[in-house]
Design a protein around this nucleic acid. Structure first.
Length: 434
RNA sequence: GUGACCGUAGCUCAAUAGGCGGAGCUCUGGAUUGUGGCUCCAGUGGUUGUGGGUUCGAGCCCCAUCGGUCACCCCA
């Protein structure tokens, strides 16, 4: 294969053998989302770059060097719009909410999106691709902490239904525009005298994104982090109450959670509640989410609280595989039609029968071309079909079909083969259905 | 963006010390011209990622490049 005709680095084909995992996740998540009253929405892959830049934040890695952005072709006046492949889903959904005036509907408006591709130009590694897919939910127009708990509870229920064990739920509150700036000042004041002793990255973080100081994994900085002032101890009164209420409501959903005051999310738009679900095996986040009460105003819309999350589907699949969870397989055909003869009549009879079965809603397969009888039986076997239906000279002559049961051990052929009238085939097959 | 390891058939992998590129699986055909699975036989399938270099001779050594995997960073 010439190397220029390969999928791009970090982009993956999703092959048939992977599809059962996707189906399982898509079905499970959609059902649970519907259970909680979320309605599906789909937004375009491309947006004006500012949709993402303004919301995620200028200083974040995602907008700074991970977005696929480019100038569109010039319009009549010669202007070029800079557009981007979406790196995350929330901003687009909020944009759609405002664009379609959904703030005039009964609030909250609960939306979910399924398997929407996301693009970030990072170096690929385990569980990280340049194109990945997310399932996500957004609840807009409601600031009640009960909905924070609801959304976390829903997520937990999805993982439970998928059969995943040992999922760790970490929550935190990062305050709002009222109390967070004060906390950041406090954090900087704490770090100022320690700075010379910090790792190189932390030196940069101190100026660029002080909250990230808490995220450092270098051993030399762990003691500093442990003694650093905590955001949860520096929340303003309303934020404190909100966080306490989230925790109270969370109990009703039976979610075993931990408060992790070190959670700092990678997007600037979060306020108050933030959360991450991770597997216990390693530290990879399966999803991330939180509240974003200021986003609608960034777009020039009415003040609209919101909360949501995005689940990395590829990461959940990795976790399903690690935990040995097998998704339901694609159903096998009920019948495989073979023709023991090379005449056109024979081929016609086989084709007609196959078409009839399918139109009757019976999953049927058949052979193509000129294959030996044995080869066709081999195909029938490999297809996993429950029955093979044999059309040969005799059957054609006396209007019958030979039906052979395939998946019944190594008995002799005579014991598992019967001949029936041609027009009894559909009742025969449906009668055998479980 | 930084670093480490790895590229041989569709897949999983061999190939002594640098000396004629192989096996298993898959696929196709056959072992009684109307019957699968188990077994046996045969066949298809390769520019050894690509381009240079060293050598009488390179899958193997050297350089470059592309790709993959993993880690860091960051994130889902």
């Amino acid at each position: 294969m010439p190397e220029n005709y390969r999928a791009l680095q970090g982009f993956k084909d999703i092959l048939p053998e992977e599809q059962p995992y996707w189906r399982l996740i898509e079905n499970t998540a959609s059902e649970v989302a519907s259970l909680y009253g979320y309605q599906r929405i789909e937004t375009p892959l491309l947006e004006d770059t500012t949709v993402f830049r303004r919301t995620s934040g200028e200083g974040t890695d995602i907008v700074e060097h991970e977005m696929y952005s480019f100038d569109d072709r010039a319009d009549k006046e010669g202007r070029r719009q800079n557009i981007s492949l979406r790196p995350e889903g929330t901003a687009s959904v909020v944009r759609a909410y405002l664009e379609h005036g959904m703030f005039k509907l009964a609030q909250p408006v609960k939306l979910f999106y399924m398997s929407m591709p996301m693009f970030r130009r990072e170096r690929p590694q385990a569980g990280r691709l340049r194109e990945h897919h997310q399932f996500g939910c957004e609840a807009l127009g409601e600031s009640d902490p009960a909905i924070d708990a609801e959304i976390i509870g829903m997520l937990y229920q999805i993982y439970t239904r998928l059969g995943l064990k040992n999922i760790r739920v970490n929550i935190n509150s990062i305050g709002d525009s009222n109390c967070r700036p004060q906390y950041i000042e406090k954090l900087k004041a704490y770090y100022q005298p320690l700075l010379t002793d910090c790792c190189d990255d932390c030196q940069i973080r101190f100026h660029k994104n002080p909250l990230r100081l808490l995220d450092c994994k270098k051993p030399q900085d762990q003691a500093k982090i442990a003694a650093a002032p905590r955001i949860t101890h520096n929340l303003c009164e309303p934020c404190q109450e909100h966080f306490a209420s989230v925790q109270r409501y969370l109990k009703f959903y039976g979610v075993p959670y931990d408060i992790d005051t070190l959670i700092v999310r990678g997007l600037d738009y979060y306020t108050r509640t933030v959360f991450e679900f991770t597997s216990e095996i390693d530290n990879v986040a399966l999803n991330g989410g939180g509240r974003y009460d200021g986003m609608a105003e960034i777009f020039g819309g009415p003040q609209t609280p919101g909360i949501g999350f995005g689940v990395g589907i590829e990461r959940v699949i990795l976790e399903l595989k690690r935990q040995g969870i097998e998704p339901p397989a694609e159903p096998k055909p009920r019948a495989f039609v073979v023709y023991f003869g090379k005449t056109q009549d024979m081929k016609d009879a086989a084709t007609q029968l196959t078409a009839e079965l399918r139109q009757a809603g019976i999953k049927a397969a058949t052979s193509y071309g000129e294959r030996s009888n044995k080869a066709q039986m081999k195909q029938a076997n490999a297809s996993g079909a429950e029955f093979s239906i044999i059309i040969g000279e005799d059957e054609l002559a006396n209007g019958t079909l030979s039906i052979k049961q395939m998946q019944v051990g190594q008995e002799k052929t005579e014991n598992k083969q019967v001949q029936i009238k041609r027009d009894e085939i559909i009742p025969y097959l449906t009668g055998h259905q479980a």
